[in-house]
């Protein structure tokens, strides 16, 4: 939910017109480029181990918390790109029609452009969420690595695969049904469109 809202916000920032908003657009672009460019696992490690390691006062210290923050940051970047593609896929004449009624740019986005964009991006968004499900494993890995290091300290050289295998299995159990569910949603959506549904 946070990701959906935050990503829409970034995408909207990026679509603001005129030279006044140039810095804002630039920031939004920098955000998307940065968090899509950086390997997810790296960011999870940096935030998950790094921030708690800094021992900052007044911020949570759990590595799970910071791992989640890392995922939210990365997926917000991906999802905002999906939204942006959606916004750009709405024909400019729709905006012209909205603006010609005296709507402000913001009103035209809110009532005319974004509702159409969101409808179009639902299938690709679902795909992103399968990715998110999977990458949650990376956050769980933080805990494992921690355990691993502990065990290394405790009994050096005695490597145990069992937790890895168990986690892998658990995630397959979650992601495979999710994938099937998404495929089903996408094909249902396609059938509806062909039947001449709400979207034209």
């Amino acid at each position: 939910m946070i990701i959906l809202a935050f990503a829409l916000f970034i995408a909207v920032l990026r679509s603001l017109p005129g030279p006044v908003f140039f810095p804002v657009r630039l920031l939004a672009i920098a955000y998307a480029d940065f968090f899509r460019g950086i390997p997810t696992i790296l960011l999870i490690y940096i935030l998950g181990f790094g921030v708690p390691g800094l021992q900052l006062a007044g911020v949570p210290n759990g590595e799970f918390f910071w791992g989640t923050v890392a995922l939210v940051l990365v997926y917000t970047a991906y999802v905002s790109e999906v939204y942006r593609a959606g916004i750009e896929s709405v024909h400019p004449s729709q905006n012209a029609a909205g603006r010609s009624l005296g709507l402000t740019h913001g009103q035209s986005l809110r009532y005319v452009i974004v509702p159409q964009a969101v409808r179009r991006v639902i299938p690709p968004l679902l795909n992103d969420f399968i990715g998110l499900q999977k990458d949650t494993a990376l956050v769980a890995l933080l805990g494992l690595v921690e355990t691993f290091r502990q065990s290394q300290i405790d009994v050096a050289g005695d490597f145990n695969f069992t937790p890895y295998l168990a986690t892998a299995l658990m995630f397959l159990l979650i992601t495979i049904p999710m994938t099937r569910f998404t495929d089903w949603l996408i094909s249902r959506d396609r059938r509806r469109r062909q039947a001449g549904g709400v979207t034209a």
Binding site: G102, V112, Q116
Partner: peptide, 26 residues
Amino acid sequence: RRRIGIVFQSFNLFPHMSVLRNVTLG
């Protein structure tokens, strides 16, 4: 723009809104 109406060649109705909502939005 509120005082100047324009109608386009390609209609440009809002496809995600009913006729009534199209007309009442402005």
